[in-house]
Design a binder for these strands. Structure first.
Lengths: 179, 179
DNA sequence: TCTTGAATAGTCAAAGTTGACTAGTCAAAA
DNA sequence: TTTTGACTAGTCAACTTTGACTATTCAAGA
């Protein structure tokens, strides 16, 4: 749903190839969304079937043909609708990263702490990466700011978890656990 | 990857039907992971092929047969490996909820604010829901606490965004935009 | 000049995911 | 008692996603 919105929003700024769309997303929005090349083309096909985009087969010189996608009025309408739908709603993110926490009692305290510190380093590294991104103008900066806010919040939570585990008595052995 | 970990972790606490596994996840962990019934069975089939679980066809009375899954030693090994892998790494969550923000400039300021306030209400409602969950014992509480932490952080960020948009000059009209 | 590697553009078969279904059991209301 | 609705248990065809390809162009270095 949001991937359609994204493709429409990009096409709104001008006609593009499927390849360019995918490439832009991969380079700039990989932290937000996940859109592999074949999926991008599949969505574009569907959007074409919906009448949201039209394709023009173009060739420059004798290079192999390329398909250039551009927005139709129906596509603009869809964009407007999807944008409002997206902004007005909130869908909580789901990492699978939490699942392990549900079973952390299985591990000896020392190993649990070692692994969580390793995880903390990973969060920290991602945070440093985003802190190094130069300021952008426009609403793209919002996305970066959100990611920064999210990563800082995760880091803070992880620190709380580590402190909590550290303060606990040594965990008892359980069924099926290696010593 | 984390869904296998989850299934293995649950089966570790005792043999179960595919249906019970799915049902438990749906009821208690829907905020963390997403595992539809047919996907659960597909994963169990794969795990069986891996030798991580075994199936016993059982019937009680003359009710139709049921398949009871249980962990093998190889499954326990896989669980231990996946658990360490999961805890030691961090994979940032991806909502698609952010995509809309990238295009918020398209909307008139007033409408943008109205939609963001609607979104804020949605976050607030989810937060209230989780604040109402009674305290659990054990590491399940960690998952709840994480969700609370996450939702509070999102709410705070949204408030910053709303304040930021509010403080901005009225947005200029752009290409393709309805008046 | 020729080769190599990166970038551009897209495809395909295989794998994963899911909405909608079947089918039996059970408890309670009509 | 029989109908209704919820619960248990699982399946299937359709749809979506993806890893791994093909094939051309282009620039740089050997």
């Amino acid at each position: 749903m949001e991937r359609e919105l994204l493709l429409l929003g990009l096409l709104r700024q001008g006609a593009m190839h499927g390849y360019q769309l995918h490439d832009f997303i991969e380079r700039n929005l990989a932290f937000c969304t996940d859109l592999k090349k074949p999926t991008a083309y599949a969505l574009l096909d569907k959007m074409q079937a919906n009448g949201w985009v039209v394709v023009r087969e173009a060739r420059e010189g004798n290079r192999p043909y390329k398909r250039v996608y551009s927005l139709t009025p129906a596509g603009e309408e869809a964009f407007q609708r999807l944008l409002r739908e997206n902004l007005g709603a909130f869908i909580a993110a789901k990492t699978g990263s939490d699942i392990g926490l549900a079973f952390i009692d299985v591990l000896p305290k020392a190993e649990a702490l070692q692994l969580l510190n390793q995880r903390r380093a990973a969060v920290s590294a991602q945070l440093a990466e985003f802190e190094a991104v130069p300021q952008h103008q426009g609403s793209y900066q919002l996305l970066i700011d959100h990611q920064l806010h999210y990563l800082r919040s995760e880091l803070q939570w992880l620190d709380e978890v580590i402190a909590h585990i550290r303060s606990r008595r040594h965990v008892l052995r359980r069924h099926g656990e290696r010593m």
